[in-house]
Simulated scan of single mutants.
Amino acid sequence: MTPADPGALAPARARELFRGGLRTPTAGWCRGWTQANLLAVPRSLAYDLLLFGQRNPAACPVLDVGDPGAFRTEIFGGDLRTDLPGYRVYENGEPVADAAEVTGLWRDDLVAFLIGCSFTFEDALVQAGVPVRHLEAGTNVPMYLTSVKCRPAGALAGPLVVSMRPVPAPLVAEAVRITARYPAVHGAPVHVGDPAEIGVADLARPDFGDPVEVRPGEIPLFWACGVTPQAAVMASGVPFAIGHLPGHMAVTDVRDHRFLVP
């Protein structure tokens, strides 16, 4: 059962609930604690993914990397195989299963990457009076494949994925200013305004997550999204990979302010 105030939970308690089978998007969970995207790839692809992150830092900001076969990292004290609320398994670039845990699929050659997540700056937006619609609605953030191509790296290439939050026009500059101070978790928006300019045809039909209402006087803001590496896995036909279910993040043991720049 989802707790009454998931934002008040400590990371270890949240991970215990997920390990026990709770499956839910994690926006608003564990206020003040950094959330991260997970992507685990075979060691033979680990350098390519690291290079992909270096070449596409807005979309793939690498926070931590595990040793081959390891299911913990320095910033995540839980078990990466069981302590997220949802996983997606890929074979030959195709999503073949969504799972509650992946213990039986974890391999000795898998290298786990934890990648920055825009949920990290959402509390700062709320504190500044900038509405975050999916938090208000209790739904998953909407995410979209775009026509913008990432810089390829080795065997990995694919489109930029963005998350979207509608913001009242007078607050757009404030939203940009606040999020620009979190470059390690996607930073400022990569696009403001007309979704068609980045190849998004219909805001009501996200590729991942749930649609949200865009009200009169609001402008859609688009941030680079950590699902981008999973889009590269699909576009590149990667033989095997394990990621988080979009919006169902790894709750780490580091505070959001660690990634705040003056």
Score class of each variant (00 low, 15 high):
V89L: 14
G158W: 13
N92R: 14
A99M: 14
F71K: 12
T120W: 03
R151L: 14
G129I: 06
R151S: 12
I178M: 02
V141Y: 00
P152S: 12
R133Y: 04
G193V: 01
L114V: 00
G93D: 09
E122K: 00
F76A: 06
E136D: 13
V190A: 09
R72V: 02
V185G: 00
V161G: 01
P189S: 12
P170H: 13
H191W: 14
G158R: 14
D98G: 06
P159G: 07
N140D: 14
P189C: 12
G93S: 08
G154V: 05
C117T: 01
C150G: 11
F71T: 10
G93R: 11
A97W: 09
E197A: 15
A100F: 07
F119V: 04
A155P: 04
F76L: 08
T103E: 14
G104P: 05
F119D: 02
S147Q: 10
T146V: 02
G138M: 08
L84T: 04
V192G: 07
A153L: 09
V172G: 03
V130R: 12
P131A: 08
I75K: 06
A169N: 03
G86Y: 12
D123R: 08
W106G: 01
I75H: 01
E122N: 04
A137P: 05
A175C: 12
Q127W: 03
P166R: 14
L80S: 05
K149I: 01
Y182G: 05
C150H: 03
P170A: 12
E174D: 13
L125K: 06
V130Y: 09
C150M: 15
V102Q: 10
A155T: 01
